[in-house]
Design a protein around this nucleic acid. Sequence first.
RNA 1: GGGUCGGUGCCCGAGUGGCCAAAGGGAGCGGGCUGUAAACCCGCCGGCUUACGCCUACGGAGGUUCAAAUCCUUCCCGGCCCA
Length: 431
Amino acid sequence: MTHKGSAVLDDLQARGLVHDSTDLASLRQRLDDGPITVYCGFDPTSDSLHAGNLLMLLNLRRFQDGGHRPIALAGGATGMIGDPSGRSEERNLLDDAQLAANLEGIVPQLRRFLDFDGGLHPARLVDNRSWTIATSVIDFLRDVGKHITVNQMLGKESVRSRLESASGLSYTEFSYMLLQANDFYELYRLDGCELQIGGSDQWGNIAAGIDLIRRRTGSHAFGLTSPLLTRRDGTKYGKSSTGANLWLSAQKMSPFRFHQAWIGTPDEDVRKLMLQLTLLQVHDVEELVAAHQLSPERRVAQRRLAREITALVHGDDQADAAEQAADLLFAGGDPRLVDAASWEMLCREVPLATFDPSRLSGEGAVPAELFAELGLASSRSEARRLLEQRGWMVNGRRLEPHHRLTSADLIMERYVLVRRGRSDFHVLSAS
RNA sequence: GGGUCGGUGCCCGAGUGGCCAAAGGGAGCGGGCUGUAAACCCGCCGGCUUACGCCUACGGAGGUUCAAAUCCUUCCCGGCCCA
């Protein structure tokens, strides 16, 4: 490492990724003194991580690239309790099977973004069950609970907001903070971990851990939070424009859809997202933004953003495929002219539904009925409404009111390309 | 336990016997403009039907009435007050 250990901090600040921090000057000094061990926790509340988690994963990566040692923590134990932070209502407890399935989903995702093998500071992946499960209630209350007063806990925003709400806060969730504080303590004790990072909603939990470490060891640990990923209107990202979560799992959201979600990024958000969700250098981002502003209709920034994030999450090959599919679909040409290989690729990228070819014989199929059956619309009424509102395109042409689908509409004697609205594509396949 | 107010469509919220598939707002969806952007404009927004229309729905279950989201009985749930 030729550069200073605190360079990562400058980078984070330049990217707008520092929301709250313990004494920044001390942290800077500590980073310059040598590699630090930094951790961030991810609770298995679902079987996949989403775009919001991606931001923190990349932050760990930034620390690793900056010469520090990252630990990704899978919250096998805390996931059983449920973090009340940022939540207006009590969580439902996960059962063992669900938790196991969720961990199985997210652990490989955690592995993907860090370097676990090479270098002087390989990343580590831990599960907080390893030190939590065997702990007795008595030990926990004596060793952890004794050091934190209820008075402090009541002062935390996550607790206070819930105390004022109608749904209240169970003792279980109230205790969550102690578990996370103990995680930090254990990682400090076992691995010399001195820094915890997280989303800004984690500040209370992180501070509790720092307090616990100080009380039990007299040492100073550090905390750093990043702003939650929000749109210009303040709503959380992680959700796509359609309201669905932006899942990192290809099973839950196809790479194509994932890529498309970022393509649709509003101009005002694109700079921030490039800074916070990609590993592009800050000055490269500024160049891209400048180029974008010169001719925004080319959408170079959005394209690059989508490219970078999709490649990070799904790999270069998948990003290529998603780009090609998008070019094909949005170029506006006649899809019947597309070659077989491209069609195959398209079928992998775009949601595919199969139907019985006999539907096309005779009079042919009523499009609205077929589309509703295949899930392209939630009911026949909706499909019909869309037809009235000119919301359907079949094979690149506006669907006419009385058109029937027949074998003449098949591409490659097998496929129908359906577009609903502006950018919702489906391939129907006669099986 | 007593009293009282309330539970309406995805959310908020009007409606107190027919004019109610139910005002208004938000979200969402489609179209237009543009750039697969934002803003803005128009339309749609329970289901079935080409359509006339039919069915289901205003916390649950019964009842009164030609007619109920609206009245009565009862049950469930929530807020507030008293104990």
